[in-house]
Amino acid sequence: MAAKRSNEPFLWLLFSAGGVVAALLVPVHLFLFGLAFPLGWLPAPAHDTLLALARSPIGRIYLLVFCVLPLFHWAHRFRYTLYDGLQIKHLNELVNTLCYGGATVGAAFAVYLIWRIP
């Protein structure tokens, strides 16, 4: 019987690439926008400064990578947290659908929002 080709390597690649983005880029964003600016440790940049950064072609590609890859990182890790950690194995198909499906919906939403930046 021919083995069904697994899409696991592809999902693992997304997980791994998302892990790199989450490690290299998320901390500095989270520190600045989530802590330093709201708490007044550093002067927050003006709306038009950020818009100028976000709307450039490189800015859009950057934001797309920043949002999409970590979502698939989450999907893969969270799936296995439920599988190994809480041993929810009987709901495997449902968990997979919710995790990778959720990440796909999030990614589509990211594409839409980034496309829409004026």
Binding site: V26, H47, L50, A110, L113, I117, P118
Partner: peptide, 30 residues
């Protein structure tokens, strides 16, 4: 370590709100 992924996803959602607010103009961003 595995649960850290939830917080990564939460910050991506925050960033998506931020992009939406940036696109919405200065008052939406404030």
């Amino acid at each position: 370590r595995e649960l850290s992924s939830i917080f990564v996803a939460w910050f991506v959602l925050e960033t998506l709100f931020q992009i939406n607010a940036l696109a919405g103009g200065p008052s939406a961003y404030s």
